[in-house]
Nucleic acid binder design. Structure first.
Lengths: 161, 161
DNA sequence: TGGGATCATGTGGGATATCATGGGTTCAGA
DNA sequence: TCTGAACCCATGATATCCCACATGATCCCA
């Protein structure tokens, strides 16, 4: 069963660059032999960090590998996914040290917010997250979308972004 | 589970032609009886060095050998892959000595950057890498690729380069 | 239903081990 | 005899690991 990341969790970012992985996320991320997460800058949402477990990353890798080795498509994912990803083990207290490049990418200072996103999660600077979320709510109000159950949702065309 | 090379790691190239293999890469490359990596000039990306472990090289060998012996494809791969590969053991500090021909191929001087690429990794001269990565990011923005999970992605044709 | 106890989680801090870098020595081969 | 490969040592910085404490959530009992 694929894990599902839910909820919004406020955490502190300390002077050593450490954050606590929210306790509900940890069992979803653990796998035998490795307690940690994979983080990379989102290319979909500016100012966000995407997070997932190694199992999900392996699914991504399998998907990328369905492109032939040395193909153009594989090149693009190399530059955006593998090269910018960080595999971080958490310590005995469930904390990871965020690389400076991710702290910069998300504009983090003293706090961060972990946001469940179903199969993955995101990490935002709290103020940026509030603004981003407000935009999403407005977008949904301006362009309401039904959510069919049991069958794939068709992407509606014509909308920007 | 196949190893996955992630992240971007800046290293020094010293006057003896030595570089440190980034510590996270070393367990992925180690195999019983041999601590080292296989490096060869990339035929796909000018100015890059491709790197992998012996296990992955064996997969490449099997793949190449699936072409008929003495066929043009097999000749091409043999000329670019086997003939120009270097198997380098690292020392007690995790360093290898880069052959001059690879240093020239990548245009390295004082620094290098190791870039994770899933099953393999690449070594670039930092400025060349920055330019190459900017191209890739632009290509992805101009020609966004979804990354479906669980089923093979069809290579789209007609794209430039 | 309320209060108390216990346990889990998050935060702060420090110590230690590892890693990256710089350098030197020795030996073998040309 | 010289050069280069292989091996080894030292040091500083950083990553990793571990401890302690406070707070809040949860559970149990009256």
């Amino acid at each position: 069963m694929a894990p599902i990341f839910l909820g919004t969790h406020d955490v502190k970012l300390d002077s050593k660059g450490r954050v606590s992985i929210p306790a509900p996320f940890r069992p979803l991320l653990s796998r035998q032999g490795f307690d940690g997460a994979v983080l990379f800058p989102s290319y979909k949402v500016d100012g966000a960090i995407e997070g997932c477990g190694m199992d999900f990353l392996n699914q991504l890798v399998d998907s990328v590998n369905s492109y032939e080795l040395f193909s153009d498509a594989q090149e693009d994912f190399s530059a955006t996914l593998f090269a910018s990803s960080h595999q971080l083990a958490w310590d005995a207290n469930g904390r990871v040290v965020l690389p400076e490049i991710l702290i910069q990418a998300a504009g983090l200072t003293e706090k961060a917010v972990f946001v469940g996103n179903g199969k993955m999660f995101r990490i935002f600077e709290p103020k940026r997250y509030a603004a981003w979320q407000a935009e999403r709510v407005q977008a949904l109000k301006a362009n309401p979308r039904p959510l069919p159950l049991g069958k794939p949702a068709a992407e509606t065309t014509g909308g920007a972004s």
